[in-house]
């Protein structure tokens, strides 16, 4: 597992940095989003000046955003700097950690949920051996129990479902 991660990391290091056109992708994403809000806003109804409709504000802001994102795309396309290299491993692991917490906390309780969340989050870090991960996860989950349920008194179940 560790060797695999190290190899993945190394492959990533060697990969060619993505071209700065990546920047324009952000603008394009915003443009798409603004179109969703403009179309959706019109469907909801823009109303009249006296009684502005449900869709009026999304349409107004959508149009402004669309214009601005076009400007951003144009500017980013002219930008010749190297963009940052994305770290998709951490991206996936952190997302997965949040997903694990969401799936476990109501079903098996805060303590095991936090334990699994820590394990998932620390997976992409090869510098921490598996034993270290287990110890970290155990201490964090027990500390959370003491702090949040014991001390602060949040209405969470430490073990088991709600």
């Amino acid at each position: 597992m560790r060797a695999f991660l190290l190899r993945l990391r190394r492959n990533e290091e060697e990969a060619r940095p993505p071209h700065a056109y990546l920047g324009a992708l952000g603008g394009a994403g915003l443009l798409a989003l603004s179109i969703v809000f403009i179309v959706g806003g019109y469907e909801l109804g823009v109303g009249s000046p006296r009684r502005l409709g449900t869709g009026a504000f999304p349409v107004i802001t959508g149009f402004i955003l669309a214009v601005l994102s076009l400007i951003v795309i144009a500017a980013d396309l002219r930008n010749t700097e190297d963009a940052e290299r994305p770290d998709w491993i951490s991206f996936a692991a952190i997302g997965a950690a949040l997903a694990v917490f969401a799936l476990t906390v109501g079903r098996i309780g805060l303590v095991p949920g936090a334990f699994l969340t820590v394990i998932t989050a620390s997976l992409p870090d090869p510098s921490l051996p598996i034993l270290g991960k287990l110890v970290l996860a155990a201490s964090v989950s027990l500390a959370c129990w003491a702090l949040f349920i014991g001390l602060i008194g949040l209405p969470f179940a430490p073990f088991g479902g709600v």
């Binding site: 950690a97 906390v105 969340t117 989050a121 870090d125 510098s127 996860a137 964090v140 959370c144 969470f156």
Partner: peptide
């Protein structure tokens, strides 16, 4: 940081869930 960030993630989860 290898100890810090998994801990922070759990704190964020609990904070948001609460």
């Amino acid at each position: 940081y290898r100890y810090m960030y998994p801990t922070i993630i759990v704190l964020i989860c609990i904070g948001v869930y609460s």
